[in-house]
Design a protein around this nucleic acid. Sequence first.
DNA 1: AAAAATTACGAATTCGGTTTCGTTGAATCT
DNA 2: AGATTCAACGAAACCGAATTCGTAATTTTT
Lengths: 334, 334
Amino acid sequence: MSTIYDIAKKVGCASSTVSKALNNSKEISKKRKAEILAVAKEMGYVPNSSARSLTTKKSWSIGIVFSEDLHIGLEHHFFSGVIQEFKKSVEELGYEISFYSKKIGNQSLTYLEWFKYKDLDGILIVTVDVEDENLEALRQSKIPVVTVDSGLINVPTVISDNFQGTRMALEYLMSRGAESIAHIAGPLRSFAAVERLEAFKSVLSSCGREESVFVEASNYDYKSGKEALYKLIKLTKDLPDAIYAANDDIALGAIMALKELGYKVPRDTSVIGFDNIELTRFTSPSLTTVKQDKRKIGTEAAKLLIEQIDKKTERTKGIIKRIPVELIIRESTK
Amino acid sequence: MSTIYDIAKKVGCASSTVSKALNNSKEISKKRKAEILAVAKEMGYVPNSSARSLTTKKSWSIGIVFSEDLHIGLEHHFFSGVIQEFKKSVEELGYEISFYSKKIGNQSLTYLEWFKYKDLDGILIVTVDVEDENLEALRQSKIPVVTVDSGLINVPTVISDNFQGTRMALEYLMSRGAESIAHIAGPLRSFAAVERLEAFKSVLSSCGREESVFVEASNYDYKSGKEALYKLIKLTKDLPDAIYAANDDIALGAIMALKELGYKVPRDTSVIGFDNIELTRFTSPSLTTVKQDKRKIGTEAAKLLIEQIDKKTERTKGIIKRIPVELIIRESTK
DNA sequence: AAAAATTACGAATTCGGTTTCGTTGAATCT
DNA sequence: AGATTCAACGAAACCGAATTCGTAATTTTT
C-alpha cells in the first residue's frame, strides 16, 4: 500500500533519501535514518518486489525445470525431497523458487524466454529428457544453471555416484552367492539410467562375467517394472539368481510380477533397487536398495548454483559432483 | 534483452503503439500490428514480468502457505498431490505458484506483507496450524484466499468429507463384528484431526456405544503413531477389536507397535487408516483406509480461488466444499 | 579566518511496461 | 462542400523502487 513516496512526504524528505535509509546506504545520517525507519514501520511499509527487481535486475528467484514427460513432479518420491532441500538452502540466502510452466499468459515460452521474462537469477534442472531440444539453448547460454541427475555437458551437475552404488549392489549380490545377475535399466533417455547400465556392464565384466543380461523399462515406475520383468523372463531361459533394478519403483514392480509368476523373493531370486524411497521399508519383503542422499544432493545443487550467481564465475566446464550412496540391506536379497 | 522501445525504434513508432500491438488492443490497424509483431518476433522480444505487474497490479502468481510445523512440505504424501494438482489447474489459466518463506532478503515477512511484497493475486493455505497467529491477519483481510483441510472461519475451504469417511470406516468395522473401537486422533491443532475425532464420537454414540476411547498422536507421522498406540494400550485394559487412525502414517506406526507387542493385525485387532497414500498397498498387511481424493481437492481449491480473483466477489462467507471419500478395503481389517 | 574536503541530502533519470487522452487524417453524413 | 464522426497513432504520465550526480551545509585543514 504505502510506498517510499508516502514515507518521504510524511517525513518531509525526498524519496531517494528514504531509499537510502531502507538500504543502509552510507549517504545518510543516523538521525534521518532512524526517523525514516520509524515512519516506515509505523506506516507498515513493505517494498514491492516488482519495482525492486525492475531496477536492480535481480529477482531473487530461481527457476526449477523438471521434465514432466519422465513423470517427474512434485509427487515424485525422490525428487520432491531434492527440491525441498534445495528450496530450503536457497531460501536461507533470500531466494525463492519458481516453477517453469509452459503457459505464461496465452503464449508458451522456452526455458530461455522464461528466464528473461521472470528475470531469474538461475535455473535448476531436475533430470533431463535428452529429447527435450529446448534444453539445448539453455545449455549454450551463459546463464547460471545447475542440473541434478543429468548429463548436460558443460553444465554443473549433482548426481549420485551410480558407479559406486552399482558396484556395491552387485558385489553384495555376488558375495551372497549370485551367479547370474540381470539388470532392469531405467528409460535410457535419462542419464542416470545410462550410467547405471554402463556401471552394471563394467562391473560384471571386471568380475569376469561375460554377458550382461538387461532389459529397459519404459519408465521409472511400478508398472514399467512389471512389464520389464516379463520381458526379462522371455529373454532368459532360467530365472537369474538376482535382479538389479534401476530404481525402487521398478524393483517393486518386478517383485510383483515375480509373485504373479509364482516365484518367491528372495528364495527364488534376489531383487535390489535404487533410491531408498520410504516405501521400501514397508513392503514385503522389504527392499534391499542403494540409498541416494537426497538432502545432500539438494544442498549441493544449491551451493553450485549460488556460486555461479554470486561470483559471476562462468560455469565451470562440466563440473560433476558425485554424491556417495549407501547400500541398505533388507529382506529382498538372500 | 530487447524492450518495446527497441521495437518502437526499429519500426519507427511510439512504444505505446507497440504495447497496443502486443496486447491486441483495438486501437491499432491490422497493418501496423502485423508489422510490429513481425519485428518483435525477429528481435526475440519477451515481455518483462516485473515491469508488467508493476503497472497492472496483477502478478499472475498465487502464493502457497503451508505450516512447516505440522511437518507439511513438498514431500508430504498427500499434500504434495494436492499442490501438484492445484498447480496444474491454475497454470492452465496462466498463473504460477510461489511458496511462502519467512526470509525475504534479510527481514521476515508476515503472510500479509508477503502478499503485498509480491503483489500476489491470491493465496492457498494448505492446512492451518491453529496456533499460527500470523494467519489471523490474513483471515480478516479481504484478499482472495482458499484453504485446504482447515477450519478458518469465513475463508472458503476444501476438505474431505471427514464425517462420511469416519462413518464408512466405523460402520464397516462394526459390520465385521467389532465391538470396541478406539481412535488414534491426529494432532488436535489441525482441523481435520478435530473433525475426525468429533465424527468418531458422534458415530459411536449414534450407534449406542457409550464411551469413545481415543488418544491423540502428537503428529501425523509414523513415529507418533507408534507412541500413540503405546499410550492407548496403557489406557485400555483389553485390546480393542479395532483401531481407527486419523491417517495412514499413524495407522502404520500403530501396526508396527502392535507387532512389537506381539499382536497380529488383523487377527488380534483391525486397523484402518485415512488418506490412501501409495504406501498402503504395499505394506504387510496392506492397509484398509479411507481414500482422499487429492486431485479433486486440488482442482476445487483452484476453482474457488480463481473465482474470487476473477469475479472480484468477496469471499463467500465460510463456504466449505466437502469432497467425497472412498473406503478402500485391504488386509488390515478382518 | 579562509580554503579545502566531507557529509547529507534532493532533483532527476531509469528500469520496461500500460493507459489515458489529445491530435491528426480519413471516411461518413447532410 | 462543409460539418461530423471515427479510426490510428503518439506524447506523456505512471507504477515503485534504485542510483547518479549536483549542491548546500558542515567539518577539517592550513
